[in-house]
Write a protein that binds this DNA or RNA. Sequence first.
DNA 1: TTAGGTATGTTACTTTTGTTACACAAAAAG
DNA 2: CTTTTTGTGTAACAAAAGTAACATACCTAA
Lengths: 210, 210
Amino acid sequence: MKEILEQAYGYIFEEALLLEIEKVAIYKEFKAEEYLIEIGDYIKSMPLLLHGAIKILREDENGDELLLYFLERGDTCAMTLTCCMGKSKSKIRAIAENDGAMLMIPVEKMEEWLTKYKTWRNFVFESYNIRLNEMLEAIDTLAFMNLDERLYKYLTDKAKVIGNTEINNTHQQIAYDMHTSRVVISRLLKSLEIQGKIKLHRNKIEIVAL
Amino acid sequence: MKEILEQAYGYIFEEALLLEIEKVAIYKEFKAEEYLIEIGDYIKSMPLLLHGAIKILREDENGDELLLYFLERGDTCAMTLTCCMGKSKSKIRAIAENDGAMLMIPVEKMEEWLTKYKTWRNFVFESYNIRLNEMLEAIDTLAFMNLDERLYKYLTDKAKVIGNTEINNTHQQIAYDMHTSRVVISRLLKSLEIQGKIKLHRNKIEIVAL
DNA sequence: TTAGGTATGTTACTTTTGTTACACAAAAAG
DNA sequence: CTTTTTGTGTAACAAAAGTAACATACCTAA
């Protein structure tokens, strides 16, 4: 664990903090598709992502979903920060995009380190900033882009996160993430294929040029 | 100034912190419609809103606007926090919704107080939380609601913020805030009037029941 | 009082997105 | 090797939102 921690966070945290993390953190592995946080959960520990990717979803009263953004190595979830500090329930759902691992930090430590370590404080604020910017990007996408553009962005973003230009998804799964219907996604994917931007296969979409 | 500060923030900050704020803060009044922050601005001080309301807007590359949320008394702008800490440019525009006043805190103090005062730390995190939740709400609105519902929400939100069920706005101004066209807004307003939810006048919209 | 600017109302039409229904092909299960 | 399930393609239609054009009403300033 020491090595992985060093590898993912060594360049941001000072030695003393790394040692403390090592002492109290719980190492947790997860599998693709695993539900990590459900809406309404109380969160008692804060995750530091070591490897793998996690997708963060929002849901409305009718159970309709919308993908907000992805978390990657070195990320933590600002919603978790929010919930830890404010002791409120999670307003989002987190699902593993692929296999991965993370460290769980108890809430008390999180608060304690804020005064004790400048690098931790910076990390926490930096995380908030990144998350706010991701949210702004999500808003831009919704407000200013058409569905076909949003779809292409979805595909390329996903390709970046999983590090592969081949995306193993059904049209239905994409429709859920984007909060639209399967027919619409099929239609737009077909038109992207005609434009030469992607190639369609069963259960697989290939991005021609990233 | 001491009284206004006491009135707006007395119940959250401890005495010592209030004294420090009083010492370093610059009192600034603003008029309705005044541009307080422009996209691309570097922000060197953090505002604490005393009274009045401020609207926060997002803009895309084409200059199209979208209202994100309103700030009220006791609020601060998380974007400012982001920019102060990260020393990056503002990604949003802030315009005074009506006359008001705020205190400007130098960035250095903001950081210093984080370790010194627990109430300040709580306030800063609480601000982040509120802002993240406002952003989530904005996303919900965009993703899950139709334009007519969004419009009605816009009107009622605005009425709450300005504390008046009469909204002095042209259809064109609303169209800018909601990133759509004047014709569409006129159409939907007319249908809200027929439903008996609002009454239309020149330069003024009256909300029948809040 | 009139001319010009501004705000609103309305029609007709287009584009985008959502919905229903069904055909067909690939994969999985028996 | 059949049957069933799952994933994709497509047509036809409906609803929502965007656009262009113009009429009319109100307000203000000459």
